[in-house]
Nucleic acid binder design. Structure first.
Lengths: 216, 216
DNA sequence: ACGGAAGCGGAGCGGGCTCTCCGCTTGGTG
DNA sequence: CACCAAGCGGAGAGCCCGCTCCGCTTCCGT
């Protein structure tokens, strides 16, 4: 992991860079992404200018912080994909991913927000086939109803995430119950079939990235 | 419905009040609650001062706008509660309520946000027993699994609402598919039982009102 | 018709956020 | 050690927001 690209940073600069990253990681994880550069600077004990110099756009900072977490999610998926039992593969993947989001509020907002953009798109491209495979194997075994698609699974974190987020200070585990409930909806045996169509990949991407959230 | 309480408004004042309400209704419904008083004033063709004079806190404006919509939701529940088939009662209630939210972004944010506070609490007190009754009748008929409670039903709009919101410009009906999927999770026949406990009423209230949303 | 109460508009204040700019400091090199 | 590019800090510009305040206008009772 030697840095080299555009000539190395001076030693003090690198030290400050790390301070900023450390402080930002803590702040984001605890309070979410709505943290100003000023706050990060203060927490890191450096000037605002320094933060802006290293990470001109907030996205640069987020990228540096979350790149490996996203990689970790992808690997979660790949591990799950290798499981013999596809149903367990699906559920454990979703559970593990949501667990990560439960522990890190920033990661949660990042994954579900628009800033993930390119990073998320690339991750999705690697996760989708794995989940798709799990899903079709699960259908063959009669573990999952026939009328759900990958796009439906992709919405599960959105559903459960909403509860995860709101219940965070109150019942930090409630999302597990909700996840179980939702996953039971994927089981075969429903009398009707699902109305409408699953989202196509383009729509799915928009649902994740076009989104400009603002609450109240 | 005669106004009288604190002496009537002058005629021009009343006219302005209506203009503000009309403009605010449109803005909120289209773009959500994150509209400044300035914007409302401009859209209504009045000065900011006028908006503040009539509706000092944003909550006052919201209350005036959404009071009867909330009442409508309560009546939806009561109608549904009178249905012979409790399962259909439950699903049609949720569907109708979410339909209202799909049509009015402001209502959606209001119901799921913290500003509803007192209004929502009162509404919940009227809706809960009705849903509780539907639920127990449905359980007796074997239409619903035994391990779900009213609090679990109460989370359904949160789940589905997350999709409703994000998919709004892209696939405005996707929430119906998601709702159907989630509701199938309430059906009996799951092999395991749900982990954890349903939220108690106090927790539920916090989940709805303590919530300070901020996205990215 | 006219006087005073009620209402009006919008300039302006305080505060937060993003981001820039520049005089001073520091690290590394010859 | 001496020099200067690299880096630093933070004041402050520009923007939007919520909210207030007060000189002018409009309504309405007498």
């Amino acid at each position: 992991m030697d840095d080299q690209g555009p000539t190395r940073l001076r030693r003090d600069a690198e030290r400050n860079r790390q301070r900023v990253l450390t402080a930002a990681r803590r702040l984001f994880s605890e309070t979410g992404l709505a943290v100003s550069h000023d706050e990060v600077a203060r927490a890191a004990g450096v000037g605002v200018g320094t933060v802006y110099r290293r990470f001109p756009r907030k996205e640069d900072l987020l990228l540096a912080l979350f790149e490996d977490q996203v990689e970790q999610v992808v690997q979660l998926a790949e591990t799950a994909g290798a499981r013999a039992d596809p149903w367990r593969g699906l559920t454990t993947f979703l559970e593990a991913m949501l667990q990560m989001q439960a522990e890190d509020r920033g990661l949660h907002e990042y994954l579900l927000g628009p800033q993930a953009a390119s990073l998320a798109v690339r991750a999705t491209e690697r996760i989708s086939p794995v989940v798709g495979d799990l899903l079709s194997r699960a259908k063959e075994l009669g573990q999952v109803r026939a009328d759900v698609e990958v796009a439906d699974v992709a919405l599960v974190p959105v559903l459960v995430g909403a509860v995860l987020d709101r219940a965070r200070g109150v019942a930090p585990d409630q999302w597990r119950r909700v996840l179980a409930l939702v996953m039971d909806g994927f089981r075969p045996g429903a009398d009707g079939s699902l109305p409408g169509q699953p989202l196509d990949p383009g729509q799915l991407e928009q649902v994740f990235t076009h989104w400009k959230g603002r609450p109240a």
